[in-house]
Design a protein around this nucleic acid. Structure first.
Lengths: 161, 161
DNA sequence: CGATCTGACGCAATAAAATTGCCCGTTGCA
DNA sequence: TGCAACGGGCAATTTTATTGCGTCAGATCG
């Protein structure tokens, strides 16, 4: 699963624009189409590349507001966590959900059109599962958002010239 | 920029899998290839679809740890904000960055291989810009992560049968 | 040291998908 | 009723993805 310099270049390109033809990617990384294509295939099989998706403009689909919701709970067992995860999964407004260490137990990022819609979401959420200590922080603006992960830490193939 | 039911179906599909052939998308939404293709083109031109990207597995590229970094500051002017934004942009580890209302002024999501790498990142960050009140919260696990935005709020074309 | 095996590459053919041109039917409106 | 605008569909055409096959360099083994 180690990635050499060429693999990382390919991934960098694909993380920016997955529509780029393999031939062009190959040209940019110094390979012909076939070996470049095979590397991409392999990275897909290996699961390094999980999938290719269309990224939409949040404003244009009317979910320009992001809210971070922190949850503290006393229920620290696995069963409860699964239930919570299941409930959250039902809400497409929740685009990210993390189990946290420290003060807060869970953190989720929710996208909605406006404060009113958030309130509606909030009521529906607490209707599905009993949450006592919840606090919401509103984002006034998104300064940076990328799906591209840094590749500087990827496991490097040793014979990586 | 209003989207009808078919547009939303198309977007739902493309948010899940952008490799699906237009012909197949058309079949699923009840259209032939051409009109389906034209709708997609239009949504790309309109910027509803921003781009298509490859999504990688964080673990597989060795950035399995997410840290949420909260920043409070006294500098509430626009110039400082721009500088901060510029600095943050330089760090590929920062995948999301928000200006917040309330207690915290800024919130960023950072991805790194481990705690040690986070420490390194942190030092480099505060070396680039003077930040006094910073607090870090570590995610123990990612329970949900999707790039797919909910389309339930999208502006609906009135003649939407 | 030479035979061989493996892995990665590239070219050229083939298959699949995107893109375009052109025609058709429906709807709204003068 | 006649016309124009708005989709929609079929059938080319063009681009890309995918596969088959041959080559080459380095590692392995006897």
């Amino acid at each position: 699963m180690a990635l050499d310099k060429i693999d990382r270049k390919i991934l960098t390109l694909l993380q920016k624009d997955a529509t780029m033809p393999v031939a062009e990617i190959g040209r940019k990384v110094g390979l012909s189409t076939t070996p470049c294509w095979r590397r991409i295939q392999k990275m897909e099989e290996d699961g390094v590349i999980q999938r290719r998706v269309a990224v939409l403009d949040p404003g244009k689909v009317n979910v320009g507001v992001t809210v971070f919701v922190s949850v503290k709970t006393n229920e620290h067992n696995d069963a409860w966590m699964r239930k919570f995860a299941g409930v959250v999964d039902e809400f497409p407004e929740v685009v990210e959900f993390y189990r946290m260490s420290g003060d807060v137990d869970y953190l989720m990022r929710v996208v909605v059109p406006d404060i009113g819609a958030y309130d509606t979401f909030y009521k529906r959420l607490i209707g599905k599962i009993n949450l006592t200590d919840v606090s919401s922080a509103f984002a006034m603006g998104q300064i940076k958002y990328t799906t591209a992960l840094p590749l500087d830490f990827a496991i490097i193939s040793d014979d990586d010239k």
